[in-house]
Design a binder for these strands. Sequence first.
DNA 1: CAATTGGTTCAAAAGTAATTGAACCAAAAC
DNA 2: GTTTTGGTTCAATTACTTTTGAACCAATTG
Lengths: 187, 187
Amino acid sequence: MEKAQDEPSLSAGLDPVEGEFVRFFVQVATTLNLPRSVGEIFGFLFAADEPRPFDEVVARLGISKGSASHGLKFLTKIGAISLVYVPRDRRTFYEAETSMRKLFSSALNESVRPHLEGNARLVEGLEERIATAAPELGDKAAHYRNRTASLRNWNDKALVLLPLLDKLFSLPAPHFPFKLFGSDPEP
Amino acid sequence: MEKAQDEPSLSAGLDPVEGEFVRFFVQVATTLNLPRSVGEIFGFLFAADEPRPFDEVVARLGISKGSASHGLKFLTKIGAISLVYVPRDRRTFYEAETSMRKLFSSALNESVRPHLEGNARLVEGLEERIATAAPELGDKAAHYRNRTASLRNWNDKALVLLPLLDKLFSLPAPHFPFKLFGSDPEP
DNA sequence: CAATTGGTTCAAAAGTAATTGAACCAAAAC
DNA sequence: GTTTTGGTTCAATTACTTTTGAACCAATTG
């Protein structure tokens, strides 16, 4: 067993600061209902200062190859990490997307928008159903239409606001346009 | 067209439109990682035109008293439904909050804000840890500080934007202030 | 006061999701 | 060619969540 280069403890655990990053993202993953292992992997890669290979993820975090494979695929799919090609090394290296803005933006577009669009179709189905059943419904029909109108209105609003939200988050610095609307008696 | 009135069979309790509402909210609950039963209960109450008692929730949805009790408590806690007092009736009645605006707003304040605030404290812990370990970290310290700065910046931004989002959603109608900032050569 | 009714609690059963590890494949090294 | 290495897949175990139902409590009713 030869050592190509003198890497510091590839098979050891995490140093205290890495551990803290991992803990943080495990916590975040938990609140997002994502598997713990996904949080661990992302935390590890987020803390790293350069791309890390598959086997290091496995060894340093002490998780199984199966978990690592699943987690890395998932994170890649949602755009939270990406593959990095390293010449003369057969292994795949991964690095975390460290721009929170991009992470947030892709979460918005990959996760929340599809759901909103799905909801929109379901609401349409609901409206149709009510229209069809209107004769038998009597004066309940009006009530039901009220309810669906509320759903549709909210959902449409949300869909329209998504890109706006995205924009708000990509603003450069901590100077936001407060008091966006309304009279603003400011000098 | 049989209307079994003495048959307490499975989904007999719901008329087609109610069923559709329930289906819709079960779907929503699923995407929010909430129990199916919570979606069912909310859907049923959302479709109703007036408050409904506990035992009707149980009977019409065909779920256990335990589930109903849990689900109603949960929905009450998050402010999605509320208790209604009905004179001369020993039972508790429930009604859904049907204003999507209010639902969204309380979700924001009860669910997402606490997490963001929790994250803020965790990031502070992380920063402290890095400061403490700085001597041993060498030039990695700067790298780690970079990473946490990114986290903190995003989290602070999110906290600041929350109330704004809330405001955006309470705007009356489908006329939003697009192009919020920047030069807007509008008539 | 005993009986009934509305509702809660909790332990066990059923259902889901995550993790593991071994079998496996494919490319590279020998 | 054979062996080694990096990585994927998948069935089985483990861990967790949800639902149920029966026991129970606390008001009300008779």
